[in-house]
Simulated assay, not measured.
Amino acid sequence: MAAKKTVVRTLVESGFAKVSEVCRAIGLQRSSFYWVSQRSPESIELEREVLRLSKDNPRYGYRRITALMRREGHKINSKRVQAIRRRHGLQVRKKQRKSRRVNENEPKRLRASAKNEVWSWDFVYDQTEHGSSFRILSVLDEYTRQCHSLNPRHSYRAEDVIEVLEELIVEHGPPRFIRSDNGPEFIAYKIRDWLKEQGIQTHYITLGSPWEQCYIESFHDKLRDEFLNREIFYSLAEAKILLEGWRKEYNDERIHSSLAYLTPNEFARSVQTPLRATPSTPSVRELIPNLIRNNIFTESTV
């Protein structure tokens, strides 16, 4: 409709034909051409805000955009946001990879129930514009979803991994467990001995079973989709600066549906951290009523 009205307006203003002739030629009712929208200024402003947030976060879906709108104080339904984005062709289409589920007969995997109980770390690869590859060591707190490190280097030795972890322990405190795959940097005797000295227990996933490290795999998927695929790095120094900026934005601004649409830092501040977690530590969903009572978020955002 909008495209046809633009065609009519362009031809009429150029003097090529009359409104009735152009409308008849393209199959548009004259009443439709002269019709003026009766939308309220508030409705127009809401649509502009949805489009602005969608433009700033092109890989966000309508549910997360709705949560951002509500955090800014707008009262809006998720279906309305979906309709606006569909009208402007902003729907995010992403093919989900099939993941193998853990068999019910297999032992239950280690599950984080408190901050600093389980950290997960792994590498993700990328390269500069000139083809120079580098590796990014990412460290994630599985309970709060806080990303503690996104450190890029051309190569990593066991000493380099220990150096990064030492800095994180000074800043955040030591984890109780650290989960990783069986990469050579993580199973090196030097790292295992150092972790033992620090009182940190290692938890290695089964060979060929990345689904056992689902939190860090999900994080890497977001990192790749929302940042790495959209950026061009001209040097390792530039990559380090941009990665650190995205890490801070991820912790401070990116809301998570699994955290009741809080950011990782907001969720970490809203829960108490025992020295050693117990099996009775509440889950995220069990904490929601307490967070509502403490005005961390409103019921409309759940």
Rank of each mutant, 00 (worst) to 15 (best):
E244S: 08
D160M: 10
S218Q: 15
G199K: 10
L259M: 08
K196E: 15
I187W: 00
H203T: 07
C214Y: 13
S257Q: 14
K222Y: 07
T281S: 14
N265P: 01
Q272H: 05
T206F: 04
R153G: 01
R224Y: 00
E244I: 00
A188L: 09
T206K: 13
T263K: 02
A188R: 07
R179L: 07
E249G: 03
Y204Q: 09
P282E: 04
E167A: 15
S270K: 01
D252P: 00
L236S: 15
E249W: 00
R157N: 07
W246G: 13
I241K: 13
Y261F: 15
Y189P: 04
T273R: 13
D181Q: 10
Q272V: 05
E231T: 12
F177Q: 08
G173T: 11
Q201S: 14
R230V: 02
S235G: 13
L165T: 12
W194G: 07
Y204C: 04
G245W: 13
Y204M: 14
R176D: 11
E244W: 03
T278D: 01
S155F: 05
L223I: 09
L165G: 04
P152Q: 02
R247Y: 11
L223V: 08
R269S: 10
E163T: 10
Q198L: 05
W211M: 13
E266I: 02
Y261A: 02
P264Y: 01
N251V: 13
E163V: 04
R157F: 05
E159F: 07
S218A: 15
I200A: 06
P264M: 07
W194V: 05
P210M: 09
R269P: 00
H154Q: 13
S155K: 06
E226M: 02
G173S: 11
Q198F: 07
E171N: 09
I200G: 09
I191M: 14
Y215G: 01
L275G: 08
Q272R: 04
N182T: 08
R157S: 10
N265F: 00
E185L: 09
P264H: 07
H154S: 14
P274V: 01
S218I: 03
R224S: 11
S257T: 09
E166R: 14
H172A: 03
A158I: 02
I232D: 02
T273E: 12
G173W: 12
L223C: 15
